[in-house]
């Protein structure tokens, strides 16, 4: 129990610290790397409360895919540190406001302000029922039954976003010669070459 508490404080402290570093550090590449560290420690926190499936998905989706693409983009930026510092005060109020809103939402959700505690209690009750099976199965059972339509809608939203991104970046370039693998494989010796008998000193 002591070890678990210790682990919790270590992971929590690193999460918060690296979250702060994401905002504070001057170099955007460091920011993304700290973000990855924050993801990792958040995953470890999920593991500590026994939510192993969510922990692994967090690592696979955010660390394994999303953050890689972030890093891709950020690394290719032509970083000018002085310019980056300039906007700081301008964006501070907006950022602070978003932070406050998020904090308020979390507090409301936790029932600190008197509301929302009922939902948490209900969730806990539900949780106790499904904890008899391991948590991948538990999530699967609710996700594909109770929340099936919402799950499908989420999928469609993602699909639309994906198609949107493709449409925005699609451009037809004239004069591009594409490799057609089928054609290449179907080509026969007769189509591809001719054997010419060249008479001596005659030329072709």
């Amino acid at each position: 129990m002591l070890l678990q508490a210790l682990a919790f404080y270590v992971f929590a402290a690193v999460t918060v610290a690296s979250g702060a570093m994401v905002v504070v550090s001057r170099n955007p590449v460091y920011s993304v790397l700290f973000l990855i560290l924050a993801f990792f420690n958040a995953a470890a926190l999920f593991l500590l409360i026994g939510a192993e499936f969510i922990a692994m998905i967090l690592v696979i989706v955010y660390v394994g895919a999303v953050a890689v693409l972030f890093l891709f983009v950020v690394m290719m930026l032509d970083i000018n540190l002085v310019e980056l510092r300039e906007g700081f005060l301008k964006y501070l109020p907006v950022g602070a406001m978003i932070g406050v809103v998020l904090l308020a939402e979390i507090l409301l959700g936790l029932g600190v302000l008197g509301t929302g505690s009922a939902t948490i209690a209900a969730l806990n009750k539900q949780g106790a029922q499904v904890l008899a099976v391991d948590n991948t199965r538990a999530i699967g059972r609710v996700l594909y039954t109770q929340y099936f339509y919402l799950f499908q809608v989420a999928g469609i939203v993602l699909l639309v976003a994906m198609i949107g991104a493709i449409v925005l970046t699609l451009r037809t370039r004239p004069g591009v010669r594409r490799q057609k693998v089928g054609d290449q494989i179907n080509r026969t010796k007769e189509q591809a070459m001719t054997v010419v008998k060249v008479p001596t000193r005659g030329g072709v």
Partner: peptide
Amino acid sequence: NVGILYLFAISS
């Protein structure tokens, strides 16, 4: 219980 996912996560 999530061994496959762990492997996938680490290899990514």
